[in-house]
């Protein structure tokens, strides 16, 4: 068993409602990110996947609070550390890339300053060293003319190049773990394929663990080693790629896979999941998926399902598994 870089225990996040009450958005989730792996989190909007990642970075919005649980990063509880320590960790040991690189880059700063910023903050390098490092890294992430790119402003780059710049920025301090929140959703399919290949290469060559969030099971399959499926703030199923995609047990995972149009489904009705994704304010059911589940039984509306271990890494939280 390889060591865990990140251990999340019973993490519970609450969102402050307009009337001042707390609605639970992420409900007692526990998982670990192992050294050198790519772990995927898949789920639909509002399932809590982005909030989870933001809480790992300590970047929660004002109205979101961690109510319970621990986030252990190499043994240190990130929910309890000081802001100074947080700033030491962010960008150096742990970094993040987002969906829309344009909104993460400063439009008034040249790429060079932005890419080298984490190094400037976390180490002492001369100007020339910073330049060389930034240059080497841009070449590494596959930018054709790195010198010109360093001099450019974000608006002069294409979406794919901006995301490569973001990846360079996030990896310049060789972090132990990289968090990626839908990093390819805004990109074209061909650009997406290149960015996924790049992330995979960084993972394999430098052993950087990646926590990869996506709503697209195809993307998850292409890049991840293990997957967590989240629904309404809970992890409903976890396992290796093949566990989840070839032998899913939870009815939500199954429904999600079935509802994707693929080659052999043309001309047939897509077996879509009825109803809609519940929002945070909706009343909580013992099993969050029960109202939409076509195999729901009486017990599903009465009792929360326990999580059953199906295989070595394969866990599902359903009365039927």
């Amino acid at each position: 068993m390889s060591e865990n870089i990140l251990e999340i225990k019973d993490l519970t996040l609450g969102v402050t409602e307009r009337d001042g009450s707390m609605a639970v958005a992420v409900d007692h989730i526990s998982f670990e990110v192992r050294a050198g792996e790519i772990l995927g989190i898949v789920g639909e909007s509002g399932c809590g996947k982005s909030l989870t990642v933001m809480s790992l970075m300590g970047l929660l919005r004002e109205d979101v609070k961690a109510l319970e649980g621990q986030i252990l990063f190499q043994g240190e509880d990130l929910l309890a550390v000081s802001e100074e320590r947080r700033r030491e960790i962010n960008g150096k040991d742990m970094s993040i890339i987002y969906q829309e690189p344009m909104t993460s880059l400063n439009p008034l700063m040249r790429i060079e300053r932005q890419v080298a910023e984490p190094l400037r903050l976390h180490g002492s390098y001369s100007r020339e060293e910073l330049h060389q490092k930034a240059l080497a890294l841009l070449t590494e992430v596959g930018i054709q003319d790195p010198e010109a790119c360093l001099r450019a402003y974000p608006h002069q780059l294409s979406g794919g190049m901006r995301q490569r710049v973001m990846i360079a920025m996030a990896t310049i301090c060789s972090p132990r773990i990289l968090l990626a929140d839908e990093p390819t959703t805004a990109l074209d399919v061909t650009t997406q394929a290149h960015v996924l290949d790049l992330l995979k290469r960084i993972n394999r060559e430098y052993g950087t663990a990646i926590l990869f969030i996506s709503h697209d099971l195809g993307v998850i399959n292409r890049i991840c080693d293990r997957v967590l499926v989240m629904y309404a703030g809970k992890i409903v199923e976890a396992g290796t790629n093949r566990d989840i995609l070839d032998a899913p047990c939870h009815e939500y995972t199954r429904g999600l896979i079935r509802s994707i149009p693929t080659r052999d489904r043309k001309g047939k009705e897509l077996p879509s999941i009825p109803g809609r994704v519940p929002s945070v304010e909706d009343p909580k059911e013992p099993c969050p998926f029960a109202p939409r589940c076509r195999r729901a039984m009486e017990i599903c509306h009465r009792e929360a399902p326990a999580c059953t271990r199906i295989d070595q890494d394969h866990i599902a939280c359903c009365h039927l598994c």
């Binding site: 709503h215 697209d216 999600l256 509802s259 009705e269 897509l270 879509s272 009825p274 994704v277």
Partner: peptide, 29 residues
């Protein structure tokens, strides 16, 4: 969302059977 998108695809197919209309469907997918 994926589960909702597939409902809309099904909806287009059902309406197509009920009504007479053509569609230009633009997508990157």
């Amino acid at each position: 969302d994926v589960s909702v998108g597939s409902q809309i695809l099904n909806l287009f197919n059902t309406i197509d059977v009920e009504r007479d209309f053509s569609m230009l469907f633009i997508s990157h997918n």
